[in-house]
Design a protein around this nucleic acid. Sequence first.
DNA 1: CGGGTTTGACCTGCGC
DNA 2: GCGCAGGTCAAACCCG
Length: 310
Amino acid sequence: MSNEPRDLYNNYDDPFQVNYQYGNFGSEPSPYLSFTDCLRGSTDYNSLARAFGISPSSSEVVSPVDGNPRPVFDAGEIRGPGSESNNNPATPNSSISSSSTEAGAEEDSSKSKREVQAKDGEGGESSKKLNKLKKKGEKREREPRFAFMTKSEVDHLEDGYRWRKYGQKAVKHSPYPRSYYRCTTQKCTVKKRVERSFQDPSIVITTYEGQHNHPIPATLRGNSAAGMFASSMLNPNPATGGMGASFPHELLLQMRTPSVSHPGSGGAGGDSSLYQQTLNSPQQQQYQQQFPDYGLLQDMVPSIYFKKEP
DNA sequence: CGGGTTTGACCTGCGC
DNA sequence: GCGCAGGTCAAACCCG
């Protein structure tokens, strides 16, 4: 299932015009969504997949509502240079990122379970001895996941949302640990994992799980230009392309280098496809160097997003 | 003092 | 059933 050819970004003729029309998803036309929209849950999984340029090629696609397994998408099909051009705003960015998603499913069985445990064990030491009240039959399901590979020296990329780190684990076969973050907004269960590719330490793999059910926080940390940026793009002006890059990662996505997902390699379902992506093609490196002058946005978005390759 | 990070322990899922 | 690895909790700690 992984060998189906996928679309790639085709718009690198003009770095400011990145095609948001990703590969076909079924027979429906591709809607134009912003990443933030997706994260905020304003769309369904199919839309997500489309918005992220994700093809169901590698996956068992099932309806999210019927309790069946969700589709496991492959690495995003991000269009490469040289094809149709839409007038979507893109940002110059020498960082590299690619995306991938994996479908999870409904919610937080683990969390609710934990909550039960905590409440139940409010006897102090006994709380540690969590009771394994787990609803049998309710198989643990996962939120949809979206992964990005970003070339950056900074592990935790600012994306406009506020995150609290709740764990860190060593990753097998990797010298780099994986960090776990949770959105600090109340009632928002979005999580993200950040880890560094051990194959290419300059690449940060960020995996989002879930969808934000709230807007990007208006007030962000002082240096959070990314947040400002994200917020400012929340209501994209149709005249500028019909959609905004409301999320830095989306920008990264837009700036994706071509051929990140290889028809033959990105096919492994789930996260594994991530690790099969390589960013080493000459084409990609060349692309990275195409935007020496990222101007304005450089002032708005932390430098990590525009990190120039040495 | 409140909010975020660190870190060891614990839980869960999965493959063997 | 066991062991491993991933994921999460929560106390302790740090910082503005």
